[in-house]
Simulated assay, not measured.
Amino acid sequence: MATRESMENFLQQCEDTIRLAQKHYENGRKQQHFDKDGYTAALQQLETTYNDLAHLAHSANAQQREQLHRKRLQIQQLQNDMILLREEQSLNEKTF
């Protein structure tokens, strides 16, 4: 079973990663051209956090797994949104 402290620390790490990625996503939406390196790094950090989450879920109790599941859904939705925005931006660059 994952300790309460390790879960709290990990959930805080998830929140920090999500906040950073949301910041890059919002900046990308507002601008025609955005920081591709930062955007890619944020996507990679989301993926790393997602993988860590999957690993931690194996040692979590039912309540902790539910918390992790909700974070997983947040991370996946943000990853999807960011990928779609990047593709949309890429298509717009090619048409100009």
Rank of each mutant, 00 (worst) to 15 (best):
A41I: 02
N80V: 13
Q22W: 09
A62P: 05
T17Y: 02
E5L: 15
T17E: 04
H58G: 14
Q76Y: 10
Q64N: 03
A21M: 00
L73F: 11
R86H: 13
R19Q: 07
D16W: 10
M1Y: 06
K71F: 03
L91Y: 11
D52T: 11
L11E: 04
L20W: 09
N80K: 04
K30G: 04
F96K: 13
E47T: 14
H24C: 06
R29K: 11
E8G: 02
F10Q: 03
F96Y: 12
T48V: 15
K36E: 14
L85C: 01
S59N: 13
Q12K: 13
N51M: 10
R86Q: 14
E26V: 11
K36Q: 08
E8T: 12
A57C: 11
T49G: 05
I75K: 06
E15K: 05
L53F: 09
H33F: 09
Q44K: 14
D37K: 14
E87Q: 12
Q13G: 04
S6Y: 06
I75N: 06
D81Q: 12
H69M: 03
Q79Y: 02
E5N: 14
L11M: 05
H24L: 07
D35Q: 06
G28S: 01
A2R: 15
T40S: 14
R4W: 12
L68E: 00
L78G: 02
E26H: 09
D81K: 07
T3K: 08
R19I: 08
D37M: 07
K94Y: 13
R86M: 15
L11A: 00
